Measured scan of single mutants.
Amino acid sequence: PREAYIVTIEKGKPGQTVTWYQLRADHPKPDSLISEHPTAQEAMDAKKRYED
C-alpha cells in the first residue's frame, strides 16, 4: 500500500501569504510532490484516494 503525508506551506509575498497543502510521498523518490491543494479537506481527500 502507498503512503502519503501532508505538508503545509505558505505561498505569496510576506504579509500576504496564503496557506496551501501539499500531498507528498516517498515514491518514486523521497519527498516527491504528488499534488497541491488550497484546503486541508481537499488534501485529506487526495491522500485517501492516493493511499487506496
Rank of each mutant, 00 (worst) to 15 (best):
P1G: 13
P1V: 13
P1L: 13
P1Y: 14
P1R: 15
P1S: 13
P1W: 13
P1E: 11
R2G: 11
R2I: 11
R2V: 11
R2C: 13
R2H: 11
E3N: 14
E3W: 15
E3V: 15
E3Q: 15
E3M: 15
E3D: 10
E3C: 14
E3K: 15
E3H: 15
A4Q: 02
A4R: 02
A4D: 00
A4E: 01
A4P: 11
Y5S: 04
Y5A: 02
Y5N: 03
I6L: 05
I6N: 00
I6Q: 00
I6M: 04
I6W: 02
I6V: 08
I6K: 00
I6S: 00
I6D: 00
V7R: 10
V7W: 04
V7C: 13
V7Y: 05
V7L: 06
V7T: 09
V7N: 04
T8H: 06
T8C: 13
T8P: 14
T8A: 14
T8M: 14
T8S: 11
I9W: 03
I9F: 06
I9N: 03
I9E: 04
E10A: 09
E10C: 14
E10I: 12
E10G: 05
E10L: 14
E10K: 11
E10M: 11
E10Y: 08
K11I: 08
K11P: 02
K11Y: 10
K11D: 03
K11Q: 06
K11S: 05
K11N: 04
K11W: 06
K11R: 12
G12H: 06
G12L: 04
G12A: 04
G12S: 05
G12M: 04
K13D: 13
K13M: 14
K13P: 15
K13C: 12
K13R: 13
K13A: 13
P14M: 09
P14I: 10
P14E: 12
P14L: 10
P14N: 13
P14A: 12
G15K: 05
G15F: 06
G15W: 05
G15P: 15
G15V: 03
G15N: 07
Q16T: 09
Q16F: 14
Q16R: 11
Q16L: 10
Q16W: 10
Q16I: 07
Q16N: 13
Q16V: 09
T17S: 11
T17Y: 11
T17N: 07
T17L: 13
T17C: 09
V18Q: 12
V18H: 10
V18D: 13
V18E: 15
V18W: 07
T19L: 12
T19A: 06
T19D: 05
W20L: 06
W20R: 05
Y21W: 15
Y21M: 00
Y21G: 00
Y21Q: 01
Y21P: 03
Y21N: 00
Y21H: 04
Q22D: 01
Q22P: 01
Q22F: 02
Q22H: 03
Q22N: 01
Q22W: 02
Q22C: 03
L23S: 00
L23D: 01
R24Y: 15
R24W: 15
R24K: 14
R24V: 10
R24D: 02
A25Q: 05
A25V: 14
A25C: 14
A25W: 04
D26T: 10
D26E: 06
D26P: 13
D26Y: 08
D26H: 13
D26Q: 08
D26L: 12
H27P: 03
H27E: 12
H27R: 09
H27N: 09
H27Q: 12
H27T: 11
H27G: 06
P28K: 08
P28Y: 07
P28T: 06
P28F: 07
P28M: 07
P28N: 08
P28D: 08
P28H: 13
P28V: 07
P28Q: 07
K29S: 13
K29W: 14
K29E: 14
K29F: 14
K29Q: 13
K29C: 14
K29V: 14
K29Y: 15
P30W: 08
P30R: 10
P30Q: 09
P30I: 10
P30T: 08
P30S: 07
P30V: 12
P30F: 10
P30K: 12
D31H: 13
D31S: 12
D31C: 15
D31T: 05
D31G: 15
D31A: 13
S32L: 08
S32V: 13
S32K: 12
L33R: 03
L33T: 05
L33Y: 05
L33V: 13
L33Q: 03
I34F: 02
I34E: 01
I34R: 02
I34V: 09
I34L: 08
I34Q: 03
I34K: 04
I34P: 00
S35H: 01
S35W: 01
S35D: 01
S35R: 00
S35G: 03
S35I: 01
S35V: 01
E36R: 01
E36P: 00
E36L: 04
E36Y: 03
E36F: 03
E36S: 05
E36D: 03
E36A: 03
H37C: 02
H37K: 01
H37I: 00
H37T: 01
H37Y: 07
H37N: 01
H37Q: 01
H37A: 01
H37L: 02
P38A: 14
P38I: 10
P38C: 10
P38Y: 07
P38Q: 13
P38W: 06
P38H: 09
T39S: 11
T39I: 03
T39Y: 04
T39C: 05
T39E: 04
T39W: 03
A40F: 15
A40M: 15
A40I: 15
A40V: 15
A40H: 15
A40P: 08
A40Q: 15
Q41A: 13
Q41D: 10
Q41E: 14
Q41T: 09
Q41N: 08
Q41M: 10
Q41V: 09
E42A: 10
E42D: 11
A43T: 02
A43P: 01
A43Q: 01
A43F: 00
A43I: 01
A43V: 05
A43M: 01
A43Y: 00
A43L: 01
A43E: 00
A43D: 00
A43R: 00
M44W: 13
M44D: 07
M44C: 11
M44K: 09
D45M: 11
D45E: 13
D45L: 13
D45C: 11
D45S: 09
D45Y: 08
A46N: 03
A46V: 02
A46P: 00
A46D: 02
K47T: 01
K47W: 07
K47Y: 05
K47E: 02
K47R: 07
K47V: 03
K47F: 05
K48E: 09
K48T: 11
K48P: 00
K48V: 10
K48F: 09
K48A: 12
K48R: 12
K48L: 11
K48H: 10
K48N: 09
K48S: 09
R49P: 01
R49D: 08
R49S: 09
R49L: 10
R49N: 09
R49G: 05
Y50K: 02
Y50M: 05
Y50R: 03
Y50F: 12
Y50P: 00
Y50N: 02
Y50E: 02
E51D: 13
E51M: 13
E51H: 07
E51A: 08
E51I: 09
E51R: 06
D52G: 14
D52H: 12
D52T: 15
D52F: 12
D52A: 15
